[in-house]
Structure formats: C-alpha cells, structure tokens
Design a protein around this nucleic acid. Structure first.
Lengths: 332, 332
DNA sequence: CTGAAAGCGCTTACAG
DNA sequence: CTGAAAGCGCTTACAG
C-alpha cells in the first residue's frame, strides 16, 4: 500500500494541510520543529505525492508529447536528443510517438496526447496537417512548412541550402545533375527540389525529367532510387534528398562500377555524424538537428509557461560542407 | 473550461454514474434511449474523461518509462522502434529518457518515472545497477548481464557471436588481431572481449595487449581508438566493439593508407542497417535490435498485467554475416 | 503558526 | 434500469 499524505500527517502529528504546505514551500512559516518532524517522516517513509492526485489540482503534468516520423532516422534521433537535453533540465519528460510517416498515426497520437493532458506537443513531421487549428494545447512544429500558422514554426533554409549545393555542382562543370527526392510531398523535399529546378534554370541548364527519382527518405530508398536513375541516365552528379539517401546512392554507384567522385559526384543534406566517415566523406548541406530540437523544446516550454505570449518563429541557416564526394566533372 | 462528466450528465439528463457506466461499458444494461443520449452528448461536446482523475481511481497510466544510454545510437533507436511498435498496439505510451551513458542520470530517471506511477520500466542500459532490487514496479532489463535478477532479463549471445567472428578471422589466416572495446565495463563489451581472449587462446595465439584499444562506443570513438592501435601495431584484422566503432575504424584505416580488406580486415557487431551500405560492406555479427525491443515490451506488458507470473528470460542468438570487409590475410 | 472542510473529476459499492 | 453518496489523494481558501 502506497503511503499517502494522511499517513505522513498522522505520523508527524500535524494536519495534511501542514504537510502539503511544507512540502510545497507554501503558505506561512511553520515552526522549525514542525517542519523537521514532517520532513523526517517524509524521508523515513519515502513519501512521494501521488502524481495523479497532484495533477488533478495543479494541472502540471510536466510532460510533453513528441511525434516523429521515424525514431531510427538519424536526423530525427538527433532532434530528439536536443529536445530531451533541454526538457530534462526543466524536469519535464517526453512521451515519444513514432508515426512511421503515417499521417493517420500522427492524428491518433495527437488525440491520445491531448487526452493525457500533456503540457504541450512537439510535432516533427513533414506532413501538412489540417487539424492543427484544433490543437488546443501549446505546440511547436519542427521542420514544417506546410501550415497556416504564423508562430511557433521552426524552419530550416531548405531552399537556400539546396540551391547552394546545386550551384556548387554547376560551378564544378556538371550539367547532367540528377536528384533523389521523396514522392509524398514532404515540405523539405519540395523546397529542395524547387531550389534544384530554379538553380538549373538560373544557369540555363535544361531540366531533364529522367534525372529525377523518388523514394523513401531512407538508406534503402536512396539505394533503389539511385539505382534506377543510374541505370537509365549518364548523370555526372547526384543531389540526394538527405544524407541517408546519399549513403544508399554510394552503394548504387559502386554496383554500377562508378567511382565517387571521379565518375559521379554526390551531395547529401543533413550532415549526419556518419557522413563525415563515409568513403569518400560526403559533401553535404548541414542543418543543426540537435539545436533544432533544443530550440523547439525551449519554445514549447516558453509557450507552456506564458500562453499569452507569442511564440517566435525561427529559421535555421544551413551550411554547405565540401568533402570528398564531389569533384570537377570528368566526362562530357 | 474543460468539459466534465457532470456537464455531460446534465446535458443528457442523467446522473454521472450513468455516464460513467455507459462510457466504460460497465454495470447493468441501460435503455438504448439513455445510451444514445449520453453518447450523443459525448460526441457533440467532444468529452474526454480527465486522465488524472481517472487514473487516481484506476491506476492504469498505460504509460511505461524507457531509459536508453543514447537515443542517437543506431542500435538503441532500433530497439526503441521495436518497443514502440508493440506498445502502440496496446494503447500504451512511452516516456523516453536519454541517460547519456550516465549511471547517475539513470537512477534519477528511475526515480522520476516511479513518481509518475508508470506501469513499468524498460531499462536498456549496459551498466550494472545496484538499485534494481528497490524497483517496485515491473521492469525488464535489456541487454544487461550484470545483475542478480533471475527473471525478465533479455540477453544476447554476445560471447558466442564475438567468438565466432574472431575464429573466422583466424581461419582466414589472421594472427595479429586487434580489438576495439569500451573501458567502462559495459557488460556486452566485456563479453565480447572475453570471447576474443578465449578464442585466441583456443587457437594458441598469444594475447598482445598493444592490439587492444578502448573508446566510447561511437563512430568518433571507434575512429580515435582505431587510429591509436593502427599507429603502433601492424595488425591485419580488427574486431570492433560495435558497428559504429567499425565505421570510425574504416576512416582510420583510410587515413593510414590501408585498404579494407586487403591490408586490414574489419569486423563489427550489431548489423545496423547502414553496415551493409558501407564501402566495403561490413562483415559483422547481427543481433535483432527491433525484435529485442519488441520482445522486451511484450514481456513488460505481460508483467504489468500478471504481476504474480514469472517473467521469462530470453537470450537472442546472433548471426555472423560475412561481407566485404574481411579477407584472407595478405601479409605475414 | 495550524487545522477542518471543500473541492478537483472521476468510479463504484449500495440502495431503490 | 438509475441515482445519491462516498471516496481516490491531493491543494487551497478560510477561519482561528
């Protein structure tokens, strides 16, 4: 049987009011003697106020929900790490939901989280989300462009980052530049794709549809997509939707007998820790995953504690990192 | 203002008892008419029973806590995925804690989780843990050998897996076999190390301390450790504590001008998705991370619902996977 | 400086 | 078939 505040009150010979006030550092000053007696009993019996009873009154669950499309995705796991790092300091805990890229699951999770009275929600999903407006608890959107909200959005300069990488390839002399993207209309992917198109245009390079391939944003997805595009084209460079896809593209290139970067230049997006260790190290567009998570958590925290205040938006810059997977074009 | 059961009762003209019973499918049969009225009001006002009030009575938080040493670790994120996959089906949610390999943090988190009345705890930590016995909620230990508990342990045949990989190298003619391990006495690492020693012994190969290196079980850790051991020895093969370390070792090898596998054979442990995509693909010892998580969750669930029943232990086998990072020894 | 009592939003014997 | 009342374990005006 769990020990309750009544037990502590009885043991230390005071009322529950007193115990409660002392434990919460509230109310009037109590005599040192009383305080000591109560604290001693608490200590001795290892009393902890019941979480549910306490919350029924305080409504401070100190819990937030976080929904990600894939926990094993290296980008998102880094974001989670950032979120956790911030929230732990504040004694908050995070209810983690893995939506498996499913929009249905996301909606389900949001409902469940709301039922659990979480203090706020962190939604790291690239999907557009119509039910946003019905969300009555504070929330922050990570990496989301497709929404009508004007505050609490954390974005990354997907477009600029992607543009820069394509321009880099063009400057190296590449003209036949492929791109691996994602079919399902993910916001970031669209941005990166748009930048690709625009950059070609700005450089008077004609757009070639066969240079494009779709696939899941995973290693395997990148492998399959790259395989297809390499089989039917003679591209000299390939922009991958993200680093994971680039990793898959490496293998596709090897299997096609292509040497990176001599025969094929490859560029990723994310700058995962692992990308630096690939062979050759991957040229990529860095985005600050940990910082994104950390900032998202801090904004949410702020939004929970000052519901009236407007939550700022934030756009993170990217950084283009040249490594060994890109080189001057080698063939015409 | 949140809508309560009283509101629903008033709106549908019945008592709160009736509303509660209908919503929980309990008690006696109610007239269809009453049921319809109540359900309609619930629907219309989007009523959801308060999580805390409900739990104060039912004590079914349907929440478990999970502690991992590192969310960004590819092995653990896969385990999390498995846990999530099982628990979601059961309408449970998981409170995720990232201990950063810190034993102190683990203890803190356990305390916090207990205070929150989680239904159970999943502890994925390679640390030994003295306070286990004081854990009064159901729990399952993942990947833990150093404990005195006789049930609810999920283990992997670390020793056998490691032994097999070392023996494989020896069969290829290797005699100068290095090993990258972890200093902090992690159970799995010790097992793998013990197997390494025993296998050498069984093959009458003398143990050479300089072939050993310690490091964090990360890519960077593997890189640094491999760099050190390659700088001072002429090993022809290297067993890495896990795949992440192996990835780091790849780069160390390249920087030392060594070709894998011709100059240096490398073996990992885990079989991460990425390992197959490395260049060359990594020979490694596979362990079923997703399945481990999934099983752990199912055992915990069982243990929550039948507290008296003994929770089984389970030991997962490993599978040795030969890929391109190992070859016959090339130099004497 | 301290306590009796009301109340948070539910569920559940119990009575009718 | 349905409701009044007690109770879960807390906190908080309020009164003294």
């Amino acid at each position: 049987m769990k020990i309750t505040i009544k037990d502590i009150a009885k043991i230390s010979g005071v009322s529950t009011t007193t115990v409660s006030q002392i434990l919460n550092n509230k109310g009037q000053r109590f005599s040192d003697e009383t305080r000591r007696r109560v604290l001693k009993a608490v200590e001795e019996y290892d009393y902890n106020p019941d979480y549910f009873a306490k919350n029924m009154i305080n409504r401070e669950s100190k819990t937030i929900g976080m929904i990600v499309p894939d926990v094993t995705d290296l980008f998102f796991s880094k974001v989670i790490e950032g979120v956790e790092a911030y929230l732990t300091k504040k004694d908050y805990m995070i209810l983690l939901c893995n939506s498996n890229h499913s929009h249905e699951m996301e909606k389900d999770y949001i409902k469940q989280l709301l039922n659990r009275s979480v203090a706020g929600i962190l939604l790291a999903s690239p999907n557009s989300l119509e039910l946003e407006t019905s969300l009555k608890s504070p929330y922050i959107l990570i990496d989301r462009g497709l929404n009508t909200r004007t505050e609490g959005n954390l974005l990354v300069k997907e477009y600029d980052g992607s543009y820069e990488s394509v321009q880099y390839l063009i400057n190296l002399g590449h003209r036949k530049i492929g791109m691996l993207t994602n079919e399902s209309g993910y916001y970031e992917m669209s941005e990166r794709y748009e930048a690709y198109c625009q950059c070609l245009k700005d450089n008077n390079i004609s757009y070639n549809e066969t240079y494009l391939e779709d696939g899941p944003v995973t290693i395997e997805g990148g492998y399959q997509a790259a395989k297809r595009v390499l089989a039917r084209t003679d591209i000299t460079a390939l922009c991958c939707g993200n680093d994971q896809m680039a990793i898959g593209a490496y293998r596709a290139a090897y299997e096609s007998g292509l040497h990176i970067p001599n025969d094929l230049s490859i560029i990723g997006f994310d700058n995962l820790e692992i990308s630096e260790y690939l062979n050759p190290p991957l040229t990529t567009v860095a985005q600050p995953a940990f910082e994104i998570g950390y900032t998202a958590a801090s904004y949410l925290f702020q939004s929970i504690n000052q519901p009236e205040a407007k939550v700022p938006n934030k756009t993170f810059g990217t950084k283009f990192i040249v490594r060994g997977s890109t080189s001057l074009v080698d063939k015409i």
